[in-house]
Design a protein around this nucleic acid. Sequence first.
DNA 1: ACTGAAATGGCGCGACC
DNA 2: GGTCGCGCCATTTCAGT
Lengths: 160, 160
Amino acid sequence: MPKFRIDRIDRKILDALQRDGRMANNDLAAEVGLSPSPCLRRVKALEDAGVIRTYVALVDPAAVNLPVNVFVNVTLERQVEDRLDAFEAAVMERPEVLECYLMTGEADYLLRVVVPDLPTYERFLKEYLTRIPGIASIRSSFALKQVRYDTALPLHHCET
Amino acid sequence: MPKFRIDRIDRKILDALQRDGRMANNDLAAEVGLSPSPCLRRVKALEDAGVIRTYVALVDPAAVNLPVNVFVNVTLERQVEDRLDAFEAAVMERPEVLECYLMTGEADYLLRVVVPDLPTYERFLKEYLTRIPGIASIRSSFALKQVRYDTALPLHHCET
DNA sequence: ACTGAAATGGCGCGACC
DNA sequence: GGTCGCGCCATTTCAGT
């Protein structure tokens, strides 16, 4: 819905800020071939339009003892929309659920859950997930290794 | 491996920066109950220790015409380690692959791929993925909706 | 040794051309 | 889109506990 005209310079700006969100505006301006002021104007416009949602620090999961990634396939009972909304609301409450997608096919969801260890996941599963009403089935898959985790969207298709 | 002692104040700092990676050090200091100087020292220490990996801007996928999330289950032929390394190296080359996990069970991977539309995904699949040697099977699942996408790790278990 | 305070230099950010 | 200028913030140095 936010139809925002993105030209080549905006694309460069987004590429740079997706790599380093704290880059100084002066450096950013130099990198995209602008002087600081119009560069900052563009950044603000991108923020205001919602193209740039936020700036965040990315923390190393291993360094804070969160090595376990679990992917959870949740199938809901075939029912109407309020069930979906209720489930989604429940999912938003828990910070361990970093990602949640409504998938095609049946009414099912894919979650990525991050926890310090398996007992913690078990507790999350038994004491929270299974208690959400309307759930037909839950299947958990565990990741041995996070091979790649990138937040930078590929923008090479945005051309003006 | 980076065994870093994280106390309650560090945890507050990480929580804050995971929410707003551009927060001014003065504000951050106030929020965690420190004066600016020691607060900044702690932030630098967290960066140097690799607890804070990077700072990034998060871009709205819809705003840049990247509405399609595909989850790809890739099973490799039962073979040895160099196949895995080769596959992982291939995965690192493509910016469309935002996440990749080595899963338990068989030698298979779960990828999250972001593309502007289905034809683009089809091209990615046919012209790239299927050409990686050692692949036994590929199964693609499409997301109808990104219900949640969070990058902030839950740190409530970190207590000192 | 680690924390809090003061001083300086650079940068973000607005007004105007 | 570029130039100018003000004010604030990041950063270093110093003192305190």
